[in-house]
């Protein structure tokens, strides 16, 4: 493989990895505080992409307001899902909420098929992102630079909220002990809603960039990126935001590089993540950066 090819693969992997990271962060935040795998998270990702699609095509909005509106709407959708499908189950066995989230996921997917039809629709990229940048023998899509940059900025913003603000402190407190935090006078439900809102916003951002990168939208587009991003979150250590970021990037690199170096395995591309998941669960279930959870006797 030539160096130029490798550099191209590198940027592709970086892009895919950043997109996984953004989704994975939503999974990890929700799991961190509720111990819930939010299956519907991938579908919020899809909604974000569709909202921008309709904003720019149907309502002829300029890109920036369309994106902002889409992110806000997806964020609201995430909060709504929590309010309707998860909050009533806070005291139920943990698996009930999980089944509920699987139900929500299928509901959103199929509602999208009903409303938007099941046909994939092409997405028009904005002018500045089209064309190819040439550096010597290396040809790079502008998006492969833009996506990682935006993702990085978003993650920094999130880390600032979680680590430096009061609601962020409450979030961290809830992830340690929800009952005690409630007794300390924190409005737990509001903070959980905020968590869903933030996670969904990141997922929507990822969905929008995904739709630009592989320029189309489809009602089931969130399903596989969703699963894989969850695996990325497990890989990085569920509950840890930095872990989710690292896990997402790592998964992006694994997927792109295995296919790049061993093209014979390209048909198995969608299975890599699952194989990786099983290896991780066997070798180090707490992930790369996760904390250990002890079983009490």
């Amino acid at each position: 493989m030539s160096l130029a090819m490798f550099v191209q693969h590198f940027f592709n992997a970086l892009t895919l990895g950043s997109l996984y990271s953004l989704i994975a962060i939503g999974y990890t935040m929700v799991y961190g505080i509720l111990r819930l795998i939010n299956f519907a998270h991938g579908d919020i990702f899809m909604l974000g992409a569709y909202f921008v699609f309709f904003g720019t095509i149907a309502f002829k909005l300029p890109w920036l307001p369309a994106v902002l509106l889409a992110v806000a709407a997806s964020s609201f959708a995430g909060i709504l899902v929590d309010r309707i499908a998860y909050r009533p189950l806070r005291d139920a066995p943990r698996i009930s909420a999980l089944i509920s989230s699987i139900g929500v996921s299928f509901f959103i997917q199929n509602l999208a098929i009903v409303l938007f039809t099941g046909i994939p629709r092409p997405v028009q990229q904005p002018k500045i992102l089209t064309g190819i940048m040439q550096f010597g023998a290396v040809r790079i899509l502008p998006l492969t630079l833009v996506v990682p940059t935006i993702s990085f900025v978003l993650v920094l913003g999130l880390l600032w909220i979680v680590n430096k603000t009061k609601p962020g402190l409450a979030m961290r407190a809830i992830s340690k002990d929800i009952e005690t935090t409630r007794l300390m006078g924190v409005s737990v439900d509001k903070i959980i809603a905020l968590t869903f809102g933030l996670g969904s916003a990141l997922a929507a951002a990822s969905g929008i960039m995904w739709a630009l990168r592989y320029p189309q939208v489809h009602p089931l587009m969130g399903s596989f990126p969703g699963f894989k991003a969850f695996i990325a979150a497990v890989l990085g250590g569920i509950g840890s935001i930095q872990g989710a970021m690292v896990g997402g990037l790592l998964l992006g690199f694994i997927e792109i590089m295995i296919v790049a170096f061993l093209p014979a395995l390209s048909g198995y591309k969608d299975a890599f993540a699952f194989v990786l998941l099983i290896i991780i669960l066997l070798v180090k279930p707490t992930g790369l950066m996760g904390e250990k959870l002890e079983e009490k006797v």
């Binding site: 111990r35 698996i95 497990v234 048909g267 194989v275």
Partner: peptide, 27 residues
């Protein structure tokens, strides 16, 4: 490998195996 896991992790790991089967069947 999977039955050492509990709860939701078991769910996601078995789901993973089912998906692996599907991908293998495709290939």
């Amino acid at each position: 490998p999977v039955l050492r896991l509990g709860g939701d992790y078991l769910g996601i790991a078995t789901l993973g195996f089912a998906e692996i089967i599907r991908v293998v069947a495709n290939n």
